[in-house]
C-alpha cells in the first residue's frame, strides 16, 4: 500500500491572535506552530495501515519553508519520505489553491490511499481533502473513524451527528478525511528523530496561475452578544462570590 498523508502546520492552541496592520491576516512573525491535530491522527492511521499491510507512508505538505519542522516531526514518528510544495504564499492560501498545489505534486505518485485531516485548526475550511480527491480523480469519504482494507477495496466507518455512525464500502484508490480520536497517537522516539534526518524530503514547486477562491477582506476578534458577568478577585474570593451567585441569583445549586 502506498499511502499519502496530508499534513498542515498550524499555530499552536496557546497562540493569542495578533493581526497585521491592514487587519486582513495574522501577524506571522510571533507565532509558534504545531501539527494540525486531525492530521496527527491521519498520520497515525497511515502508520498502522502500513504495519498491517506493508508499503510506505509519504507525508505531503504545502507551505513556506517553516513547514519543514512539521514534516520532520512526521518523519520522526515513522513516515518514510515526504513531498513539500514550497512557496511563501501557501501559508495563507485557501483550500482550492492548496488542493491544486498538492494534486499537482501528488498525481504521478499514484497513491492507493490518501488521508487528510477533516479540518484545519487555523482556516478550518473542511474542504481541502475532498477537493484534492476530485482533482486526483478518486472517490472520497469524510469524518472517518475506522479503516479496514479488504483487498482492492475497503470498508470505512463514518461518524454522523449525535453518536451515530455508518459503514461504507469504497474502491481503492480513494481519499479519506480523518476525524480526531480514530486511534491513540504515538510520539516520536529518539531513534525516530535520528532516523528522520536521513529521510528524503522532495521539493515541489507551486503550479503557475492558481487563483484564490475566496479572499479575507477583514479579520477581527468576534463581537460578544451575551452579557457575561465576570467575577474577579483572588481565587478564594472569586470562588466564594460565584457560589453565592449560583445559590442566590441563579438558584442553580
Amino acid at each position: 500500500m502506498k499511502i499519502a498523508v496530508c499534513i498542515k502546520q498550524v499555530p499552536t492552541r496557546e497562540w493569542q491572535p495578533r493581526l497585521n496592520d491592514q487587519k486582513t491576516w495574522i501577524r506571522e512573525a510571533d507565532i509558534s506552530y504545531e501539527m494540525n491535530e486531525p492530521d496527527a491522527y491521519a498520520l497515525e492511521e497511515a502508520l498502522r495501515l502500513r504495519e498491517r499491510h506493508g508499503g510506505e507512508v509519504v507525508v505531503c505538505s504545502a507551505g513556506p519553508a517553516r513547514v519543514q519542522t512539521v514534516i520532520r516531526e512526521a518523519l520522526a514518528r515513522g513516515a518514510d519520505r515526504a513531498i513539500h510544495v514550497e512557496h511563501d504564499s501557501l501559508g495563507a492560501a485557501d483550500a482550492f489553491v492548496i488542493a491544486e498545489a498538492l494534486a499537482a505534486a501528488m498525481k504521478d505518485e499514484a497513491f492507493d490511499l490518501v488521508l487528510t485531516g477533516l479540518q484545519s485548526d487555523d482556516q478550518g475550511h473542511g474542504q481541502t481533502g475532498v477537493i484534492l480527491a476530485e482533482r486526483l480523480g478518486i472517490p472520497s469519504s469524510t469524518i472517518i473513524m475506522d479503516v479496514r482494507i479488504e483487498g482492492s477495496s475497503m470498508r470505512v466507518k463514518r461518524e454522523l451527528e449525535g453518536g451515530w455512525f455508518q459503514w461504507l464500502a469504497m474502491p481503492l484508490p480513494a481519499l479519506l478525511t480523518i476525524q480526531s480520536g480514530i486511534n491513540q497517537l504515538r510520539y516520536a522516539t529518539l531513534k525516530g528523530i535520528m532516523a528522520a534526518k536521513k529521510k528524503e524530503i522532495k521539493k515541489a514547486s507551486l503550479p503557475d496561475g492558481l487563483q484564490p477562491s475566496q479572499q479575507v477582506v477583514g479579520l477581527a476578534v468576534p463581537t460578544r452578544s451575551k452579557q457575561t458577568q465576570m467575577i474577579t478577585g483572588s481565587p478564594a474570593d472569586a470562588a466564594k462570590e460565584l457560589v453565592r451567585r449560583l445559590r442566590d441569583e441563579a438558584r442553580a445549586l
Binding site: 499555530p11 487555523d122 478550518g124 477583514g218 479579520l219
Partner: peptide, 11 residues
C-alpha cells in the same frame, strides 16, 4: 477562523 478565536470577513 483559528478555532473561533477570530472572525473573518470573506468575499
Amino acid at each position: 477562523m483559528f478555532q473561533g478565536k477570530l472572525a473573518a470577513q470573506v468575499k
